[in-house]
């Protein structure tokens, strides 16, 4: 009995210590590099030279590559995750900024800021296979959890566009506040959250009725309201909490999904834009453009527990599955 108890503690400690280490890749918009971070030691283990102005960044579904949108080179580069070298590129169309993959990981939908289009790319064939006309300055991209609807936000048109990925056409558009940057679905697909950077709000949209049902506003004591500029939105897998990066307000808001109320503001680095959870949902990494670092938020305790220095103007972050 006693032995088993000790063994139990030992096992628990073993698991705690050997929490799986993941790999995070962070795009540094100004340095033209990608920083590779080990989430166990929280150290940058490699800095990879990429094309000009790297912004949107994501693993391919098979984890073989990390895709980086290099806007000023009009291409999406593929970093081989074994060699950490650029091993190819995708024909992205002009000025790619952000993208989302389809459910099978084969198709990639790219927001081309300069062209009012969403470009569709076949990743295995590395070929451009179609385009959808959207509003002015497309930016945010996300696929619904069931893979049936693709969302694109257009910054000057101030809309979330609902795109049928099969028909490749816009089936609905919803007006939100000024300069929508990012869109995220709740895991059950019943709510679409869209941040408006200049408007300073997050709109919660009913994706069936295509209407804004709630508008979340932010207020941080001592902070001028114009500095609160929401960009990245990340929602926990069980759909309880949403994290919203507030840009030059240097805070991440934690929101209760059920009540749409802000529970807490976490102080992170300067000009926080994009974020990503580790796959075990223990940590949330944030890119802080003006302080050139990544903040590590402990999701359970809602505390910032670490900071990792990266390149200049870190923009996006992607984390390995294992």
């Amino acid at each position: 009995m006693r032995l088993r108890f000790v063994l139990g503690i030992g096992l628990a400690m073993l698991f705690a210590n050997s929490a799986e280490a993941f790999t995070a890749y962070v795009s540094n918009e100004k340095s033209n590099t990608v920083s590779k971070i080990d989430t166990d030691s929280w150290k940058v283990t490699k800095t990879i030279r990429v094309g000009q102005r790297p912004r949107g960044i994501a693993y391919t579904k098979d984890q073989k590559y990390v895709m980086v949108a290099c806007g000023d080179d009009d291409t999406i580069q593929l970093i081989d995750t074994h060699t950490d070298a650029v091993a190819g590129s995708l024909p992205s169309g002009p000025d790619p900024e952000f993208f989302a993959a389809g459910p099978d990981g084969k198709l990639l939908y790219v927001a081309n800021e300069n062209d009012n289009t969403v470009t569709i790319i076949d990743i295995p064939r590395r070929a451009l296979i179609g385009a959808v006309q959207v509003g002015v300055e497309p930016e945010g991209m996300v696929m619904s959890p069931d893979g049936k609807i693709l969302i694109n936000t257009s910054e000057t048109t101030n809309m979330a566009h609902f795109i049928d990925p099969v028909k490749r056409e816009v089936v609905a558009s919803v007006l939100v506040d000024q300069r929508p940057r990012f869109a995220a679905f709740t895991p059950d697909g019943t709510e679409l959250w869209v941040s408006a950077e200049v408007g300073g709000t997050v709109s919660v949209i009913d994706p069936v009725k295509h209407v804004v049902e709630h508008r979340i506003e932010f207020a941080i004591p001592g902070m001028r309201s114009d500095a609160i500029q929401p960009v990245g939105v990340n929602i926990t897998r069980e759909g309880k909490l949403a994290f919203v990066a507030l840009g030059p307000a240097n805070h991440v808001a934690v929101i209760d999904i059920k009540t749409h109320k802000v529970l807490k503001y976490l102080l992170v680095g300067q000009r926080v834009w994009h974020m990503e959870f580790t796959p075990d949902q223990k940590y949330l990494l944030t890119t802080n453009g003006l302080s050139n670092d990544v903040s590590v938020i402990d999701v359970a305790s809602l505390k910032v527990v670490n900071t990792v220095q990266v390149g200049e103007l870190p923009w996006g972050v992607t984390i390995s599955d294992h």
Binding site: V174, L175, S203, H210, V211, V212, E213, H214, R215
Partner: peptide, 11 residues
């Protein structure tokens, strides 16, 4: 309030 909001942002 919710209805007004809907009208306001989604004509």
């Amino acid at each position: 309030v919710a209805t007004l909001l809907v009208i306001a942002v989604s004509p």
